[in-house]
């Protein structure tokens, strides 16, 4: 179900008049905005290209990209979970 919903969003590209329930954040995604908010030094990630977010998460997880905290956070997510988060965030409007 989740994948079907995400698929629809991806297909439509941008904001759809879908209800909030259909745009359910995948596991973990709603925690990212605790740090990544508007205009913060911790970069805004809403609306960033999906591939960019997913690649960053993969590199943080493997440790190939240096970080103060993201390495510790990315290790809590599988590749599939990070991708789902990337799709979700990419489709949110940057604030």
């Amino acid at each position: 179900m989740r994948h079907a919903a995400l698929f629809l969003i991806v297909m439509a590209g941008t904001a759809l008049p879908v209800s909030a329930a259909d745009l359910r954040p995948p596991p973990g995604a709603s925690s990212c905005s605790g740090c990544h908010g508007d205009g913060a030094a911790m970069a805004v990630i809403d609306g960033r290209p999906e591939a960019e977010i997913a690649a960053a998460m993969a590199e943080y997880r493997s440790g190939t990209r240096p970080a103060s905290v993201m390495t510790r956070i990315a290790k809590g997510f599988s590749d599939e979970e990070s991708r789902a988060i990337a799709v979700y965030l990419a489709n949110r409007k940057a604030q």
């Binding site: 329930a21 954040p25 596991p27 973990g28």
Partner: peptide, 26 residues
Amino acid sequence: NAQAKVCAQAVIDLLAGRAPQEPKLI
């Protein structure tokens, strides 16, 4: 803050008669 977002989504789901999904929190 993280729990509030997960809980709010669960409440939205429950009131819509849909099963909440297993969350992850940071």
